[in-house]
């Protein structure tokens, strides 16, 4: 079986002044896969994300996103908010970006802004309490409730997001991204700062998202136990270059990958070696 690609990145290059952060990167993520983007610190992983989600305009290259209905979007041509709105690419951030003063539920309802905005007749209808808007809001709350259950946050729905524990905030950010009904979910280090039990739960959640929601996942992660366990496909970056690309098993034995990691701090090498079973 070889499913069709959902995201094709071709010759992506990003320069900041003289610094080349991504150099001619090409890779493909397949529909229904969990694709992991790994590499040492400073390899350019988050920059790739920022290009895909429209926050940076790449210096060169093409990023083509395919929807299940066959439509295509060239992401490099879309403004940041349109990537989420039209191409339906959702993301989380390395340093969690919630709306801390708003409640958990409000965070999830804001994520459904575009749907609700249309239902409220772009505010004019909603101002005078149209029934259509109330129904749409009920649906939005139901969707929020669904994701709160999945992420085990139901009891905290009316607490402010800033009051959540770190692991809960990570889960809320994923739930919020899922409330936009994405076809591609980009997660920037979702397991960072989580303990072993929480990482396990995260793995289960990501698998659930992939199988039950037809959402493909693109993942940046340092935690090799997460990467090796759940990824279908791994892309390894080093200094903006792609140095390897393949299944977890293939990546595990790739000498170039081990060398790249050997180039960084000892601690990380030992950790990686232990995790990949060297």
């Amino acid at each position: 079986m070889s499913p069709e690609p959902i995201l094709e990145v071709e010759h992506l290059t990003m320069r900041f002044g003289g610094l080349v952060a991504i150099d001619d990167l090409s890779f493909t993520a397949k529909r229904g896969d969990i694709t992991a983007l790994i590499g040492p610190n400073g390899a350019g992983k988050t920059t790739v994300f920022n290009c895909i989600t429209g926050f940076y305009k790449p210096s060169a290259g093409m990023m083509r996103l395919a929807h299940p209905d066959g439509r295509f979007y060239l992401l490099e041509r879309l403004l940041d908010f349109r990537v989420a709105q039209q191409a339906r690419v959702a993301r989380t951030f390395q340093n969690i970006r919630l709306f801390p003063a708003m409640t958990v539920l409000e965070n999830l309802v804001v994520a459904q802004h575009n749907v609700l905005m249309a239902a409220s007749g772009f505010t004019f209808g909603g101002l005078f309490g149209l029934g259509r808007y109330r129904a749409a809001e009920r649906t939005a709350v139901d969707k929020a409730r669904y994701w709160l259950e999945r992420t085990n946050l139901l009891g905290r729905a009316d607490d402010s997001a800033g009051a959540l524990a770190y692991g809960e905030q990570r889960r809320l950010e994923i739930a919020r991204a899922m409330c936009t009904d994405p076809v591609l979910l980009c997660l920037d280090e979702p397991a960072a700062g989580l303990n072993a039990r929480e990482s396990g739960e995260l793995n289960a959640l990501l698998r659930f998202i992939r199988t039950d929601h037809a959402t493909s996942i693109l993942l940046i992660e340092h935690d090799m136990s997460v990467v090796m366990e759940i990824s279908d496909h791994i892309v390894v970056l080093d200094h903006g270059f792609k140095i390897a690309d393949g299944t977890p098993a293939a990546i595990r034995d790739d000498p170039k990958v081990i060398a790249a990691y050997l180039g960084v701090e000892d601690e990380e090498v030992i950790k990686v070696e232990a995790e990949v079973g060297l």
Partner: peptide
């Protein structure tokens, strides 16, 4: 609260 997060949600 966070403008960048808003844009990431398609607002």
């Amino acid at each position: 609260e966070d403008e960048i997060a808003c844009r990431a949600l398609g607002i």
